[in-house]
Amino acid sequence: MTKPLLEALEVGQVVTESTLHFTRDSLVRYAGASGDFNPIHYRDDIAQSVGLPGVLAHGMLTMGASVQPLVAWLAGAAQVTDYQVRFTRPVLVDAESGANVTITTTVGAIDSDAKTARFDLKVTFNDETVLGKAQVQTSFA
């Protein structure tokens, strides 16, 4: 896959639109890969005992997965110099139906002199935003 050129980008341009499907299996897999074994991510009874409706996705799974459409579009993660998010709402993952998370990546800012671009991620679950200020700084130098 060829890498996009900075000159071809425009602020406001949507570069990716996709939906990821999280299941309980995804959460167990992420727990093992990351080492985050907080039981609110795999046991409904414990999640409910701390006032949650049920098992929710690790915020860091949502963060880690939400940048992947951009990584694929950039043909690699090497250009990412800064990635930040705010966790604003939980993603509840139903035992049977899972959860669909939609991700839209938009060009947020371009600096032609510094050869950098900022991409903004809009990440929603049940039509509500789950990540705030989700921004990825990238270098095209």
Partner: peptide
């Protein structure tokens, strides 16, 4: 393992030849 868990599809995170071809 981590790449798979976050839905990554970049070959350079799975295949050493692809990573080297990308300059890593």
């Amino acid at each position: 393992e981590f790449a798979k868990s976050v839905f990554c599809t970049d070959p350079a995170s799975f295949d050493v030849e692809a990573a080297r071809a990308a300059g890593h």
